[in-house]
């Protein structure tokens, strides 16, 4: 590796980290209640006992910002894992219907528990979402054995997503009024209403899963050459694939459980990161996608909150506006590449 390349990567990492930090602070500072940077700092360090401002920062804005960062990062890594698995740059938890599967099971679990007057715990939400993710993932895997064409796989994923959404809608139709309000807000995707207890669960799951994914970067780089070469290099394909599926599912399940389905981040961020760093080496892309995804979701969440403040728009609305064009770009660049060979 030449010095120039190391330089480029360092600059890019610093840039991504700077974006994440700046918007993290912006998240804490901006909002309908006017709180200065100084007050935010004193609220965080605990030196101020000023009730309202401290509470707003500590129990509303801070958990939301941390959640947006962690979940955004996790979602991007999840997308990258799926892209590696399917050897397809436009694979992601949202387009493959994995988020929708998670949404369905979480909605069902929520309704069931609410009917019985219990509030679903964080762990319960994640568990339900994970089950749903695996369900969709299983369907996709079954189909991927049959369809060799990558575009067909994506279409199959989108259709699975629609089916899950339809069943979710159906369930919502027969649910109580109170439940619907609750569900509707969540099912559109939003980082609002996340508390510190949620953040703890998110942190444990996302950090552990991303670290595990990072440890897979060596076999992932071998797998990029195709399974035959990976096999020759000594990769245990079955174990490796299972690990990819489980990790990507748990990451997207965690996101869906707490923020609902968030669109396109999983494709857009890895694509941007690969272009920015000029490499697809997992050892670089995984940490970069994590930091980049955190920054991306912080920016999008800020826009979702502030654009029509005090009204909030759903996070997916914003990520779709920024993410979908990138997905189209990713698709076109793949087409171009095919044409040239």
């Amino acid at each position: 590796m030449t010095g120039k390349r190391i330089m480029r990567r360092t600059v890019c990492f610093v840039l991504l980290a700077a974006i994440a930090v700046v918007f993290f602070v912006m998240e804490l500072v901006s909002g309908s209640a006017d709180i200065s940077v100084k007050d935010v700092f004193s609220a965080l360090t605990g030196s101020s006992t000023d009730g309202t401002a401290g509470t707003i920062v500590r129990s509303i804005r801070l958990p939301r910002a941390i959640a947006a960062a962690l979940l955004g990062g996790g979602l991007s890594v999840s997308g990258f894992l799926l892209q590696s698995f399917f050897n397809n740059p436009i694979a992601g938890p949202y387009v493959l219907g994995i988020s929708s599967g998670a949404k369905l099971t979480v909605a069902l679990a929520m309704m069931l528990t609410m009917q019985n007057g219990i509030l679903l715990s964080s762990a319960g939400m994640v568990g339900a979402a994970f089950a749903g993710s695996l369900l969709s993932m299983g369907a996709i895997l079954l189909l991927s054995g049959k369809v060799k064409n990558m575009a067909q796989l994506i279409i199959a994923g989108v259709m699975i997503g629609y089916i899950c959404s339809a069943v979710t809608e159906l369930a919502v139709t027969f649910a109580d009024d109170a439940n619907i309000v609750n569900l509707h807000n969540w099912s559109m995707g939003s980082f609002s209403g996340i508390d510190m207890e949620n953040v703890r669960v998110i942190a444990v799951i996302v950090i552990a899963a991303v670290a595990a994914a990072f440890m897979l970067s060596k076999p992932m780089s071998a797998y990029q050459l195709g399974e035959n070469y990976a096999k020759n290099m000594g990769v245990n394909l079955r174990l490796f694939r299972l690990a990819l599926i489980l990790l990507s599912s748990i990451l997207s399940a965690c996101v869906t459980a707490f923020a609902g389905p968030v669109s396109f981040v999983g494709i857009a961020v890895p694509h941007l990161v690969k272009n920015l760093f000029g490499t697809a080496k997992p050892i670089v892309v995984i940490p970069a996608a994590f930091i980049g995804g955190a920054g991306f979701c912080l920016v999008c969440d800020l826009i979702a909150r502030m654009l029509f403040a005090p009204a909030e728009i759903s996070i997916s609305t914003v990520t779709a506006v920024f993410g979908a064009p990138v997905v189209i770009a990713a698709m076109l660049s793949r087409r171009e590449q095919k044409g040239s060979v």
């Binding site: 050897n87 440890m215 780089s221 050459l225 000029g278 697809a280 050892i283």
Partner: peptide, 30 residues
């Protein structure tokens, strides 16, 4: 092995590809 499989890996330089040959000899992170 040296196969005729099409290589579709994105953004891999030739040196990256040759480096994967060291796979069995490198550590946990490659």
């Amino acid at each position: 092995v040296c196969l005729t499989d099409r290589i579709t890996a994105e953004k891999m330089t030739c040196e990256d590809v040759v480096s994967t040959g060291r796979y069995p000899y490198t550590g946990r992170l490659g």
